[in-house]
Design a protein around this nucleic acid. Structure first.
Lengths: 151, 151
DNA sequence: AATTAACAATTGTATATACAAGTATTATTG
DNA sequence: CAATAATACTTGTATATACAATTGTTAATT
């Protein structure tokens, strides 16, 4: 669906505005379907993200600031995110022995099992969109987005 | 900046996941800078969006459901958004005479003036990103995003 | 015409997020 | 080595958002 149709605009938008909206809307669509996927598991996307970061640590616990810097959307409240995961017994938290200001956050067996269960569904979500483009187009899209951000 | 660097991943991500994250991150970057732009005016992006929709009506008032369907992110609470704008006297609200279930929302002079003041800054924000790509690339990006959504 | 269904908007509530201030610990510096 | 600064995390508070339930109004059905 063209973006003009999404926002019910009769006139064709100027290209810069069109692009801004297209990116915004695409992310919205993507996020929404991801949310649906997670809903039965009562995980928010951010909580899922934290779990995946922890698994990526391969046993080595992560500090709060490490988690924070690895998240796509740098949320301002990792503490409360981890609180929620603790309640569900998906992670562990203890004071870091080397630096008592820091916290060691680890993922539990239950957390790993949950991720394992989610893996195929997440994969499906990702490839579901990706299959709409061929490999060259996907590479192109990634390239254009990076260039667009201008970093 | 490559997306792997953003999330501090040492290994190259598979293309589908890479794309999902790239879209998410690009939207984040864009949204953040737009937020910065609006902050001095104490407007949230959603509030701004509503104002712009109302201006687009060219005098003709809009009902709640019209506003809702024109928003990029279909928020679940247009009422409270409009409440906020009312408090700032940027919009008016009265019961629709033809159908008393509906509300007629209009933009005030003050609202129009605010938009007028914002226009150049918003334009700058949009073209700021757009100038990182040439016109062909921009068209390409829009096309790929639409195709990616697969609608 | 009375009853039921559908529609448009609002309100309640629980949860999430943003931002600032606070606490505890470690590092720096005069 | 005491004082100050910096770091890592937590907490408070105000606002935002999601979702369900509610209210008031109009349309459809019997």
């Amino acid at each position: 669906m063209k973006i003009e149709k999404v926002i019910k605009s009769e006139t064709k938008l100027p290209l810069p505005k069109r692009t801004v909206l297209n990116i915004m809307y695409t992310q919205n669509v993507q996020a929404e379907s991801f949310n649906e996927l997670l809903k039965p598991y009562e995980l928010s996307p951010e909580q899922f993200n934290v779990l995946r970061i922890l698994r990526g640590q391969k046993g080595k616990p992560a500090n709060m600031c490490v988690i924070q810097e690895r998240m796509v959307a740098k949320t301002s409240n990792t503490t409360r995110l981890v609180d929620k995961l603790l309640l569900k017994e998906l992670v562990t938290r203890k004071v870091c022995s080397e630096n008592r200001r820091k916290m060691d956050i680890g993922i539990t067996k239950k957390g790993l099992d949950l991720l394992l269960e989610l893996d195929p569904k997440v994969q499906e979500h990702e490839t579901g969109y990706a299959k709409n483009l061929n490999e060259t187009e996907l590479e192109q899209l990634n390239l254009l987005l990076e260039k667009y951000r201008g970093e």
